[in-house]
């Protein structure tokens, strides 16, 4: 069941129509392995975009290509309307990213690590380091060596590093990995706040409950190929089921098969399990009534994003 978090951005509220990131026919081949196949993505300014897929599905390879770390075999990437290949370093200045897991120098403190990045980037005042550390609640531990940080602290430092350059697009790979429930909520709230500031967030995650709460749209990939890309609401709507109890199951099934927006129909004892968009439930009742079939029971059942994801990907781990 989809629940709307208090802090989550309202889909569409802050989103513009400006395309921040567009990939067209993006493909990557490593020898015989086709890691990413003809991927078309579009991210609009201010949206939180969930990029989902089992392990080894090509998420990190896609992120690597977007950040210029991996050369695509085919296809095109545009960031802020500019071709990535021709404008790599100028557009990357507008992007903050954590690729796969946060990676910093273990012997340097959290502050020193950010100082290294700020120095390498240029134009980042020291006050900004304090600001971002404050924002991720790491200010008190800023002088501790990164190697002594817990997984949650590492994640938070990773997020802090993405904010150094005041980026327009933030790419986060599993940012809630290793965080406790309080930390997960903090990160979720932070991402929502970033989106409210007009930043675009590209979120790779396995924590589908979190994605469901904070993302406007999601794309699901498996074995490098896009399975679906849709607003979260639409995807959940697609995963809506009706369990209908009727006396004449066969007749009811015949009626429902004729409705174009009805998905799968399964018989379950004296029930029919019908995949139907949530907003069409009343039309199902109408269609049956017109044929003088009156259900004794209609139970609405929404799938979670996790169920939708498992259904789309076949429910098998990519490991």
């Amino acid at each position: 069941m989809k629940t709307q978090a208090i802090t989550a951005p309202v889909p569409g509220s802050d989103m513009g129509h400006e395309i921040v990131l567009r990939t067209t026919g993006l493909s990557k081949r490593f020898g015989k392995l086709e890691a990413v196949k003809d991927l078309n993505l579009e991210l609009r300014r201010g949206e939180v975009f969930g990029f989902l897929g089992p392990n080894g599905s090509g998420k990190s390879t896609t992120v690597g290509m977007i950040l210029g770390l991996i050369e695509p075999t085919a296809g095109n990437i545009e960031l802020f309307g500019l071709n990535l290949r021709d404008n790599l370093w100028s557009v990357l200045r507008r992007v903050g990213a954590v690729v796969e897991a946060p990676a910093f120098y273990p012997y340097l403190s959290g502050w020193d690590n950010l100082e290294v990045l700020a120095t390498a980037t240029g134009g980042v005042p020291k006050s900004r380091i304090a600001e971002v550390l404050e924002r991720v609640n790491l200010k008190d531990r800023a002088s501790d060596p990164y190697g002594h940080y817990s997984m949650g602290m590492k994640q938070r430092l990773g997020i802090a590093s993405t904010l150094l350059r005041d980026p327009e697009l933030i790419i986060l790979d599993e940012p809630a990995n290793g965080l406790d429930p309080a930390g997960t909520k903090e990160v979720r709230d932070l991402i929502a706040a970033l989106a409210r500031e007009g930043r675009t967030v590209f979120l790779c995650s396995h924590m589908l409950h979190e994605v469901e709460q904070i993302c406007h749209r999601v794309a699901v990939i498996k074995q490098g190929a896009m399975l679906t890309s849709a607003p979260v609401d639409e995807l959940l709507n697609r995963g809506h089921m009706l369990r209908i109890a009727v006396a004449d199951i066969a007749s009811a099934e015949e009626v429902l098969k004729k409705l174009p927006w009805v998905g799968s129909i399964k018989r379950e004892d004296s029930y029919l399990a019908v995949a139907v968009p949530k907003d069409r439930s009343s039309q199902v009742a109408e269609a049956l009534a017109e044929q003088r079939i009156f259900p004794s029971e209609m139970i609405s059942h929404s799938l979670s994003l996790e169920n939708v994801f498992l259904e789309l990907t076949g429910g098998k781990s990519g490991d």
């Binding site: 210029g68 770390l69 370093w89 273990p106 390498a120």
Partner: peptide, 14 residues
């Protein structure tokens, strides 16, 4: 080995 090459390359000029 620390995987910092990716972090650094993203903020390097080339």
């Amino acid at each position: 080995s620390w995987r910092t090459v990716r972090t650094m390359l993203i903020c390097s000029e080339s």
